[in-house]
């Protein structure tokens, strides 16, 4: 099972690198020029540089925090003159990072929350009562039991998630 999942990520990444033409990147900088994250924290995130690092030194890049700073806005994806699917490539590289055991703190906590309650954000009883007071239907601390069960079954097959509990 583990190999199968792993091979999907690797295969998709390879497909992305070849099919999505990562090797045709000539470092023009359009992605960085369009990136909202690079605009405000250029010292911490530069998509052009990150893309080059993924291509040239994948194993070292997997451990970088920079990989997790893409805000997934698709601006670079839209404008890249070579049609490189930057957003997808970052996503697939994250898959490999997780497989290698690199778990960034906050995303991991959010995923744990999803496994627990079916949502990324917690709804405490107090929050639920607030909803009621404002005229909204109550939604409970977790999603429906059926949904939770289904989430568990699907994610059980992913060793990554099982490891996180």
């Amino acid at each position: 099972m583990k190999t199968e999942i792993t091979s999907i990520s690797k295969e998709l990444l390879q497909k992305s690198i070849d099919a999505e033409k990562l090797r045709y990147c000539y470092g023009c900088g359009t992605c960085t020029a369009s990136c909202p994250v690079a605009k405000v924290i250029p010292e911490s995130f530069n998509p052009r540089g990150l893309l080059q690092k993924i291509f040239f030194d994948l194993s070292k890049t997997l451990a970088e925090d920079e990989l997790w700073l893409c805000a997934w806005c698709y601006s670079c994806y839209e404008r890249c003159p070579q049609g490189i699917k930057t957003t997808e490539i970052f996503l697939l590289t994250r898959n490999l990072a997780v497989e290698k055991g690199y778990f960034p703190k906050q995303p991991t906590n959010l995923v744990k929350q999803i496994l627990k309650s079916g949502r990324t954000l917690e709804v405490t009883p107090a929050r639920d009562r607030k909803r009621e007071a404002l005229g909204l239907p109550k939604i409970g601390e977790t999603v429906s039991e059926k949904a939770l069960r289904e989430i568990k079954i699907i994610t059980e097959k992913s060793p990554t998630w099982r490891v996180r509990g």
Partner: peptide, 21 residues
């Protein structure tokens, strides 16, 4: 309201951990 909806499982978070899952 649909009872069995969950988080949409965003690609940037959830798919980033495991694409197919």
């Amino acid at each position: 309201d649909v009872e069995d909806f969950t988080c949409c499982m965003p690609a940037c978070l959830v798919h980033s951990f495991d694409y197919a899952t």
